[in-house]
Computed example of a mutant assay.
Amino acid sequence: MIQERKKNNPKIVVIGGGTGLPVILNGLKSKNADVTAIVTVADDGGSSGTLRNYANIVPPGDIRNVLVSLSNIPSVQKDIFQYRFDTNDHFLAGHSIGNLIIAAMSEMRSSIFEAIQLLSKMMMVDGHVYPAAEEALILHAIFEDGTKISGESKIAKERKKIERVYVTPTEDDHKAKASRKVLAAIHDADMVVLGPGSLFTSILPNLMIDDLGKAVKETKAKVVYICNIMTQLGETENFTDADHVCVLHQHLGKKFIDTVLVNIGEVPENYMDTERYNEYLVQVAHDFKGLAEEVPSIISDDFLELRDQGVFHNGTKVVDELFKLAFDNRRLEKRNSY
């Protein structure tokens, strides 16, 4: 019955990383979407960065969170997979069990792609999860002053305006390329969703893989960008919503985004715990005139979810909007085909 409903629902590919991606994926799963997640592999901080350097694997953190968001295993098993060792545990300090399992399975299978597919079966994942590439990538940033830095975790610390970013494999003797099945998923999709997530360090690292970015530009699917609610320290300080879109278009050399989802809900003054969420600054300012010059369609609504003294996208409201947009596009295509 579920598979039958999926056949009638849109094929949606979501590209990104960070904490925003699982929120959207969880909402898509609840609506029985035919969903594929393409996950960044340029993270080099925290547990992921340590395992990446120590075991020479693709950073597992974002992959772990995506697997959990699409999993149908009992919540207690998810909690075990997500459990992070205490900082007093020395050797295991800061590592989550899921990261260690992904690292072990990558070594067992000699392939991050095969490891994820096996884990997807074990965790009863409802959808497809693919790494953006099958090797760890290094994210490089060139700043407006001409200086350059390498490493995703170092970029924001510079507090400089970013001119552009690009990626290279750790072994710089070849070009980065998309993981198997990624390009086919993008070309076969009804909709490709970017974000929500850090513009320069969660979304663009995927699009900077040449064949992946080319596929997003060429797909017949509608491309939707979910704009961030807050500006980010060292990345998008003083950015408007139009600035976010403009950066994406400049990096790919084409105005490829069809629709932007913009939050217009107001974050209450002094609501956020600025120590806990210290990377977020102020709400993204609106520039609807600038957006209209970049994209054909803008959807604005109160997409806010306030919890734990933090600001998040309301996954249910965002996904309802994505589904409505996908079905409207499908009806339009049918009408045009007559």
Rank of each mutant, 00 (worst) to 15 (best):
A156K: 07
D188K: 14
K154F: 14
M123S: 04
K148C: 05
K217H: 00
L137F: 08
I155E: 05
K214F: 04
A115G: 07
S153D: 05
T168I: 01
Y166C: 03
M191T: 02
Q117E: 05
T147E: 14
V165E: 01
C227K: 08
R164E: 04
D190W: 02
S198R: 01
G127T: 02
D210P: 09
I229T: 06
K157T: 08
F143G: 07
I149C: 14
A132R: 01
S198T: 12
K222F: 00
V216Y: 05
K177H: 13
H128N: 13
G195H: 04
V216H: 08
A176I: 10
I116C: 09
H174W: 03
V192T: 09
K220L: 01
E163P: 00
S202D: 07
A185E: 11
D211W: 11
G195N: 02
A189V: 10
E152P: 12
T219A: 02
S120K: 13
A178S: 15
G195D: 09
I203T: 03
H187P: 00
L204G: 03
S202L: 10
K175N: 14
K157S: 12
D172H: 06
M124E: 15
D190L: 06
E144A: 04
T168V: 06
P131N: 13
F200D: 03
E171H: 09
T147I: 10
D190C: 10
T219Y: 02
L183Q: 07
A136P: 15
T201N: 13
Y225E: 00
E152S: 10
M124T: 12
I226V: 13
T147P: 06
A156N: 12
I203C: 12
K217I: 06
I226M: 03
V165H: 02
D173Y: 09
L137Y: 03
H140Y: 13
V182S: 07
M191V: 11
S150I: 03
L212T: 05
K154S: 12
K220W: 00
E114M: 13
R180K: 13
D172K: 15
Y166W: 15
S179G: 11
D210C: 02
A184I: 11
S202W: 03
H187I: 10
M122F: 14
K220F: 02
V223I: 11
M191I: 03
P131R: 14
K157A: 14
G127Y: 00
L183W: 01
R180A: 04
E152L: 11
P205Q: 09
D173A: 13
I142A: 07
T201C: 11
I203N: 12
A132Y: 01
Y225N: 04
E171W: 01
L183G: 05
H187K: 14
D145P: 02
G151Y: 08
A133E: 04
N228F: 09
K175G: 12
E152R: 08
S202F: 08
H140F: 04
L199M: 08
I149F: 01
V129T: 03
R164I: 01
A185G: 10
R159D: 05
M124D: 13
V165N: 08
E152K: 15
V165F: 04
K217V: 10
M122H: 11
D210M: 07
G151A: 09
F113M: 11
F143L: 11
M122R: 10
K148F: 02
V193S: 12
K175F: 14
N206K: 13
I229H: 08
S153V: 00
S202G: 08
A176F: 06
L212K: 00
